Computed example of a mutant assay.
Amino acid sequence: MKLIVVKVPVKLVSWDDIVTWASTLANKIIESKWIPDVVVAIARGGYVPARLLCDNLGISDLVSLQVVHWPSSAQVSEKAYIKYPVAQIDLNGKRVLIVDDIVDTGDSVVIAKDHVLSRWPKADVRTGALQWISTVAKFKPDYYAYEVKEWVWFMYPWNLVEDLSNFIRRIMNDEYKANSKVNWSLMELTDKLSEWYGEEILKVPLSYLSRAIASLEKEGFISRLRGNDFEIIRLVKY
């Protein structure tokens, strides 16, 4: 019997999970008796959590900045950096809550907080996230809804197509380098996704896999040969 070792375990997150965690996070903030004047969402993962928090807390001032740290799903860049800073507003004297979906390494939240304080040193800045991976994070947010003690790659409902596209790209590139494989059936690709990322990934609706494949075809990474009862997915960019 072949032993299959999952390379990157994934966990599918539902919209219900997101809503529940956002409510829990809001309650913790309310209990602390520190209510922010402004919420700063870390793009892109913090957009939805930040908007839900604003709704739960009754906050209308929501801005964003973008930190680049994960250039590809489950692959970290060498260093996090600010890609798009906060817009030209005055946050001095304001209670500012910086929000992300998850604190894993913690680099994104730290650099976002440092960025805000460097421009508005009189701001009262705190941080929040839906999830905090306590076993690997170098930074603990002031507020979090759910502590994660074992690292996995969380597939959020707002980036399923992007994650699947990146996973497929990685698999096809790896298999080409190892075995010069360029032609794939959909079943082969699905089996390999399960082998690399675990059976949890099979819970993602097939419509998202179709969109991921279409996206890769559009960018010229793959081509598709279609017949009456078959489809071949061919690697184009080696």
Score class of each variant (00 low, 15 high):
residue 138 K to F: 08
residue 89 I to S: 01
residue 117 L to P: 00
residue 140 K to S: 10
residue 95 R to P: 01
residue 119 R to A: 11
residue 103 V to D: 06
residue 128 G to F: 05
residue 132 W to F: 15
residue 96 V to Y: 10
residue 113 K to L: 12
residue 100 D to R: 06
residue 103 V to N: 04
residue 110 V to F: 04
residue 96 V to R: 09
residue 138 K to D: 13
residue 125 V to G: 04
residue 99 V to P: 12
residue 116 V to P: 00
residue 123 A to Y: 14
residue 138 K to W: 03
residue 126 R to D: 06
residue 108 S to I: 05
residue 129 A to F: 06
residue 92 N to H: 08
residue 125 V to M: 05
residue 90 D to F: 13
residue 129 A to S: 15
residue 115 H to V: 02
residue 139 F to T: 05
residue 136 V to E: 15
residue 123 A to H: 07
residue 114 D to T: 15
residue 139 F to E: 13
residue 107 D to W: 10
residue 117 L to I: 10
residue 135 T to E: 15
residue 95 R to A: 10
residue 87 A to S: 14
residue 135 T to G: 12
residue 121 P to N: 03
residue 138 K to L: 05
residue 141 P to F: 14
residue 104 D to A: 14
residue 116 V to H: 06
residue 100 D to A: 00
residue 91 L to T: 04
residue 135 T to K: 14
residue 104 D to K: 01
residue 120 W to A: 03
residue 127 T to Y: 07
residue 139 F to D: 01
residue 137 A to S: 15
residue 112 A to Q: 02
residue 141 P to N: 07
residue 96 V to K: 09
residue 103 V to H: 06
residue 139 F to G: 03
residue 97 L to Y: 07
residue 113 K to Y: 05
residue 125 V to F: 05
residue 87 A to I: 11
residue 98 I to K: 00
residue 86 V to N: 06
residue 98 I to A: 08
residue 114 D to P: 02
residue 137 A to C: 07
residue 130 L to Q: 04
